[in-house]
Computed example of a mutant assay.
Amino acid sequence: MAELTGGTADFPPGAGTALYHPQFTELGAEECRRLLGTHGIGRVGISTPEGPLILPVNYTVLDSAIAFRTAPNAPPAAAAGNRIAFEVDRMDDALSQGWSVLLVGAAEVVTDTVQVSLLNKKAHSLPWAGGDRSLWISVVPTRVTGRRIAARDLPPAPGTRPELQ
């Protein structure tokens, strides 16, 4: 009940208990692409000389690519010209279920002014970080994978014996 009423809002995510009979499912590429289109915040993973870096970014889906915007001197700009990972997920702590989509591909700066204008119009929101985030980076995935965890079936009704069902 505390989860549903917001009583645990300040607790770290992932503290829920495991589902009764959880089912782990690999998602197909089409389902992954559909789920990517339902969100506007994802994480970009890049390699740097100091080690891996994973950063949240606002993004949008355009055709078969995802695109995110950043400032030219911000850390996510280092993705340009490199092979990167991009991840989006949805977790429900109250129900201990969710999904995750990961794509891998080469990141390129979007330089075509028509494409930049289209991306600006299509963006779900203004960048949460504020400031000038006018550099769009596009990633056409070479690999898309996803997984979902959900309840396989419902727990037995109170007062019933599971072994008899």
Results as ranks from 00 to 15, higher is better:
residue 126 L to H: 08
residue 58 N to G: 12
residue 7 G to H: 05
residue 34 R to E: 05
residue 135 L to I: 03
residue 160 T to R: 06
residue 103 L to N: 00
residue 67 A to D: 11
residue 40 G to Y: 12
residue 108 E to H: 09
residue 31 E to Q: 10
residue 34 R to F: 00
residue 16 G to N: 13
residue 106 A to R: 14
residue 99 W to L: 00
residue 80 A to I: 07
residue 43 R to G: 01
residue 66 I to P: 10
residue 160 T to G: 07
residue 111 T to Q: 13
residue 133 R to M: 08
residue 36 L to S: 00
residue 127 P to D: 13
residue 6 G to F: 06
residue 93 D to H: 05
residue 117 S to V: 02
residue 87 E to C: 11
residue 116 V to Y: 01
residue 127 P to R: 07
residue 51 G to T: 08
residue 27 L to F: 00
residue 137 I to P: 05
residue 116 V to R: 15
residue 42 G to A: 08
residue 140 V to D: 13
residue 64 S to D: 15
residue 134 S to C: 01
residue 35 L to E: 01
residue 91 M to F: 14
residue 58 N to A: 14
residue 110 V to Q: 08
residue 160 T to D: 06
residue 42 G to T: 09
residue 131 G to L: 09
residue 26 E to S: 08
residue 153 D to K: 13
residue 1 M to L: 13
residue 106 A to C: 06
residue 137 I to T: 01
residue 105 G to M: 11
residue 89 D to A: 04
residue 93 D to V: 12
residue 50 E to V: 14
residue 161 R to W: 11
residue 10 D to M: 12
residue 86 F to Q: 00
residue 81 G to N: 03
residue 26 E to A: 13
residue 158 P to D: 08
residue 89 D to E: 02
residue 100 S to D: 01
residue 122 K to C: 01
residue 91 M to Q: 11
residue 132 D to H: 11
residue 139 V to G: 04
residue 145 T to A: 05
residue 100 S to Q: 02
residue 157 A to G: 00
residue 121 K to T: 14
residue 42 G to C: 04
residue 76 P to A: 13
residue 24 F to E: 10
residue 113 T to A: 14
residue 57 V to A: 08
residue 140 V to T: 15
residue 106 A to M: 15
residue 69 R to Q: 14
residue 84 I to L: 04
residue 89 D to H: 00
residue 156 P to A: 12
residue 10 D to P: 01
residue 124 H to E: 12
residue 106 A to L: 14
residue 145 T to C: 05
residue 38 T to S: 11
residue 134 S to H: 09
residue 86 F to R: 07
residue 111 T to R: 04
residue 102 L to W: 08
residue 127 P to M: 05
residue 159 G to V: 07
residue 22 P to K: 03
residue 2 A to K: 08
residue 30 E to T: 13
residue 121 K to A: 15
residue 112 D to N: 14
residue 161 R to F: 06
residue 139 V to Y: 05
residue 43 R to A: 06
residue 46 I to T: 12
residue 54 I to E: 11
residue 150 A to Q: 15
residue 81 G to S: 02
residue 148 R to Q: 10
residue 150 A to Y: 06
residue 21 H to S: 06
residue 64 S to W: 11
residue 17 T to H: 15
residue 39 H to P: 00
residue 123 A to G: 04
residue 14 G to A: 01
residue 59 Y to S: 04
residue 118 L to K: 15
residue 49 P to N: 10
residue 83 R to N: 03
residue 63 D to Y: 09
residue 162 P to S: 05
residue 156 P to I: 05
residue 52 P to A: 03
residue 44 V to S: 11
residue 26 E to K: 03
residue 142 T to I: 14
residue 45 G to E: 09
residue 111 T to K: 10
residue 1 M to R: 10
residue 39 H to T: 06
residue 46 I to H: 06
